[in-house]
Amino acid sequence: MPAVLVVVGRVTPADVPRLCGELDDLLCGAAATEVICDVARLAEPDLTAVDALARLRLTARRAGCRLRLRGARQELLALLRLVGLNDIA
């Protein structure tokens, strides 16, 4: 069963370490091989959100998991494609 991390609101640079810590805590001792990052309630997708998702992907990979998005809006998907992170979506 995949682990699920929900991202809500607008992501600031200060939120990135907290989100990565939450993901680490979620994966600690879990047998998950996949992380679903629910971004349906992410407000104003921007490059800070993209940075957060890239760092979350790295955190998941270090734990041997794949990161996938759920509920991503077109604006976020376009930004991810623009920076070469379309494999997350």
Rank of each mutant, 00 (worst) to 15 (best):
A3Q: 11
V4L: 09
V4K: 07
V6H: 14
V7M: 13
V7A: 06
V8M: 12
V8H: 13
V8R: 14
V8G: 15
G9N: 07
G9H: 06
G9E: 01
R10E: 12
R10C: 10
R10D: 15
V11Y: 02
P13Q: 13
P13I: 12
P13D: 12
A14K: 15
A14W: 15
D15N: 08
V16C: 08
V16Q: 02
P17T: 03
P17R: 02
R18H: 15
C20G: 06
C20Q: 14
C20I: 00
C20N: 09
E22D: 13
E22S: 11
E22H: 13
E22R: 05
E22Q: 15
D24S: 08
D24T: 13
D25I: 05
D25M: 13
D25N: 15
L26E: 07
L26G: 00
L27N: 12
L27Y: 12
C28I: 12
G29D: 06
A30W: 03
A30M: 07
A31I: 09
A31F: 06
A31Y: 09
A32K: 00
A32G: 11
T33W: 01
T33K: 05
E34F: 14
E34K: 10
V35T: 12
V35P: 00
I36K: 10
I36S: 09
I36Q: 11
C37V: 06
C37G: 01
D38Y: 10
V39L: 09
V39F: 04
V39R: 05
A40W: 10
R41W: 10
A43K: 08
A43M: 09
E44L: 05
P45G: 04
D46G: 06
L47D: 04
A49H: 02
A49C: 03
A49P: 03
A49K: 01
A49F: 08
V50G: 00
D51T: 05
D51W: 09
D51E: 10
D51S: 13
L53Y: 04
A54K: 02
A54H: 04
A54I: 04
L56P: 00
R57F: 02
L58P: 09
L58I: 10
T59M: 04
T59H: 00
T59R: 02
A60P: 00
R61K: 14
R62W: 03
A63G: 02
A63Q: 13
A63F: 05
A63S: 14
A63I: 02
G64M: 07
C65M: 09
C65S: 03
C65F: 07
R66Q: 07
R68E: 08
R68N: 04
R68Q: 03
R68W: 09
L69D: 03
R70N: 05
R70C: 08
R73V: 07
R73C: 14
Q74E: 15
Q74P: 08
E75K: 14
L76M: 09
L77T: 14
L79N: 03
L80M: 06
V83P: 05
V83R: 13
G84E: 02
G84P: 04
G84R: 01
G84T: 00
L85E: 05
L85Q: 02
L85M: 09
N86S: 13
I88G: 01
I88N: 00
I88P: 02
